[in-house]
Design a protein around this nucleic acid. Structure first.
Lengths: 191, 191, 191, 191
DNA sequence: GATGAATGAGGCTTCATTCAT
DNA sequence: GATGAATGAAGCCTCATTCAT
């Protein structure tokens, strides 16, 4: 019990994630986080120097996890179309399995609570997507327009699709929404 | 000077909009708003019972203004494609002319500071877009998929496009971004 | 409508009395008084320079009215006992007919909101009671002890009695309470 | 110095008692209480969630202490008369030794600042007095009238007596006032 | 006489953070 | 490592009062 207990840190992060999505950053006192995580007020500040550091850590983690989930298995796909399809399904699947994390990302994507550096680091995990677009263009599968623009369009459409998919509990409907969404994105990009 | 002065209320709203986008809701004390608006603390609370009411009012106004701007001149267009093109240009134009309002909408679209009712009212102004999609489907110009899904995809792609367009100051590049964005959306939807 | 309107002043006083007993002085904003009295905020301050002046005026009025009610018809009674009996019945009757005013007196008898001068003036209306006690002593009907002490005892017992009488709605029981109370007081004083 | 310090809580309660009697509830800012108690603003709210909770706690404590003081040694007395005599002297003695607490009770007996539940709990400590009256009636020492009425009369006369006794600094006179008061009450009650 | 928009001092309370134990 | 009492700056909001109309 005198060793650093990763359990406590983990409990704090998990509790914070839940509370932040439920109540926002400003609406969630650190005292509530520590109480619900079952640790003392001081303990939170042992692991995170400030509230902002906790927020940033959470933000970086979630973004990184999401990016990793999205990229899984992309190499196995041959064509750009297949890659994007897999990508979209990965994203949707992750979002549906991790609604709290998804909500967290949506909610705080533009939040001034998250430090600029954390925002930048968060964004950086997704740059491989832009590379994907570029490759698709080189291969002639994707329309030859500015890749960073396409990346933006694709990313926002994707996130709109997932949000919409989460609004229903019906599995069939979800799959249809994802299907339609991927079509939309693909037809929007393809050469 | 003691008769109803819409000026003061207006000054409060304008100042609040600016400060909120610069510093976030939680980072903007009501005292700062009143000071920068040139009114007394109490005056803010005379016009808006609570800080949240001020936020809500602002949110409703901005959403409604944006929706109106987007809809302008749509009736004059014949085909669905033209309607969407006009719509997209309206949206982009308004966003570029009103960057603070746009940032406000983005930043607080998911904010728990904005009351649920304000969120709903805000959304309602955009329902005419869904109707537009339906009409396009009936006319055979747009792919026959669930209209609310298409509406979501279109809306998020549009907002991604505008955000991206705003990231540059170069007029030419902006137009190109808009052009590309409208193509993306249209190809994504068309039958 | 350009004449001083005693109606407005009266409306303010009546409303204030009601609200003060319901919510206390500190819990009753002048703005609420004026709203419920149907006048403008400024009007209240035309008739009463400050909130304290309104409170004082009310306090003086009520005290004076109560004292007058208590003294009614005392001269017609011959013996000290009869005088006290009449006095007690007057007091009880007035209290029962004016519960709001009674509550007002009880509630604010020790309140620091009421100015010292108003407290003193209020008390002065009741000095005739002490004189009554003195006369009773001179006539040998009342025990020969310090009159101011007896006056205190009598006054507090009387007020306890009335408060208790008001706690029931049953007329018969009320009369019994008053009967018992007057006995208590009289046996406590008589020679 | 960082472990539970009942001293601080106690200091807050004592200071609050003094200030409340000097200036009333509304006239005593919590900031003044904490300053004079030598603690930080936040500390007051660590021990008492709200100002009202502080007031209530104080009220309950004082009432309970007063009741206990009044009851001391009653069992040792045989007759109802002796019991009441002792009771009255207890009450007077406590009031004279604790003028601030007495003033506090008088001042806030009818105050809307004190919660209903605190008022009720406060009253409950004195119910043993009513039992005393009942016993006196059963023993034939006290007039056979409704005991709750007698209790009321006795209690208010007692409190009037103590208030009057406190108005002088002369010991002899005080004792005379108490003597006279107890006579008044006893003759008022006795069979 | 009457109105009510406007004022701003001041009240209650919250909460990120510290530090003695 | 962990605790939680203690801190105090700062926030939101109230409300008595004023004064131009």
């Amino acid at each position: 019990m005198r060793e650093p207990s990763p359990d406590k840190q983990e409990a704090i992060l998990e509790t914070a994630l839940r509370l932040f999505t439920e109540r926002g950053f400003a609406g969630t006192p650190t005292s509530l986080i520590s109480k619900e995580a079952g640790v003392a007020t001081g303990t939170l500040f042992f692991y995170f120097k400030t509230k902002e550091e906790l927020i940033d850590t959470l933000y970086r983690r979630v973004k990184s996890e999401a990016a990793q989930a999205m990229g899984r298995g992309l190499d196995a796909e041959k064509t750009a179309k297949d890659k994007f399809c897999r990508l979209g399904k990965n994203a949707a699947g992750w979002g549906i399995r991790n609604p709290a994390k998804l909500k967290f990302m949506e909610q705080f994507a533009h939040s001034p609570f998250v430090s600029t550096s954390a925002h930048e680091e968060g964004m950086s995990h997704f740059l491989f997507l832009e590379e994907l677009v570029r490759q698709g263009i080189r291969d002639g599968e994707i329309r030859n327009v500015e890749p960073s623009g396409l990346f933006c369009l694709m990313a926002s459409a994707l996130s709109g699709m997932i949000a919409h998919a989460l609004s229903t509990d019906d599995r069939k409907e979800r799959e249809r929404i994802i299907e339609d969404g991927l079509d939309f994105i693909w037809f929007g990009m393809k050469a």
